[in-house]
C-alpha cells in the first residue's frame, strides 16, 4: 500500500465530515429521523400519509446543495470513470443492495456506527470489504 499524498485531503475531509455529522444530528434531534439516505429515498416508494414531506424535503436539500455551496465559494467537479452501462448496473446493485441490507454509507456507516449498532458494524465492514474487492478486481485484475 502506498499513500497518494497529492490526493489526500485530511482537513477538508474532516471539515466536510463535521458538516455531514451536523446534518445527521439536525435531522435526528430536530425531526426525530435517521439520515440514512437509502432509507429516506426507499421510503418514498412505500408512501404513507404524513411520512412523505420530510423525505422529499431532505432529498431536495441534497440536490440543491451544489447550488448553495457554489454561492459560498465551494465547488467540486465530479469525475466518473465508469461508462453509462456500468453506472446503470451499479445503480441497480446499490438500489437492491441498500434496501435488502437496510442501509448505506450514511445509515449504517455513520448513523449505525455512531450508536455502535451490531447490525451496522457488520454491514459497514461488509460493504467496505465488497467495495475494496470490487475496485481491486476492476483496476488490478481486469486492468480497466
Amino acid at each position: 500500500m502506498t499513500i497518494d499524498w497529492n490526493a489526500f485531503t485530511p482537513w477538508s475531509a474532516l471539515g466536510g465530515g463535521l458538516l455531514i455529522g451536523i446534518g445527521v444530528a439536525m435531522l435526528l434531534l430536530v425531526d426525530g429521523r435517521i439520515a440514512g439516505i437509502s432509507g429516506v429515498v426507499g421510503g418514498l416508494l412505500r408512501p404513507r400519509a404524513g411520512d412523505v414531506g420530510w423525505r422529499i424535503a431532505f432529498v431536495a436539500g441534497l440536490v440543491v446543495a451544489p447550488l448553495v455551496a457554489a454561492l459560498a465559494g465551494q465547488s467540486m467537479v465530479p469525475h466518473i470513470d465508469a461508462s453509462f452501462v456500468i453506472v446503470a448496473l451499479a445503480g441497480v446493485a446499490v438500489g437492491i443492495g441498500t434496501r435488502y441490507g437496510a442501509g448505506c454509507t450514511s445509515g449504517h456507516g455513520i448513523c449505525g456506527v455512531a450508536r455502535l449498532s451490531p447490525r451496522s458494524l457488520v454491514a459497514t465492514a461488509t460493504f467496505m470489504a465488497a467495495g475494496f474487492a470490487t475496485v481491486f478486481i476492476v483496476r488490478h485484475v481486469l486492468g480497466a
Partner: peptide, 16 residues
C-alpha cells in the same frame, strides 16, 4: 444486501 451495495459502490464510486 450490503455485499451487493458494496459491489455497486465500487463499480461507479457512487452511494445514494
Amino acid at each position: 444486501g450490503s455485499t451487493l451495495f458494496g459491489i455497486g459502490w465500487g463499480l461507479a464510486g457512487f452511494c445514494p
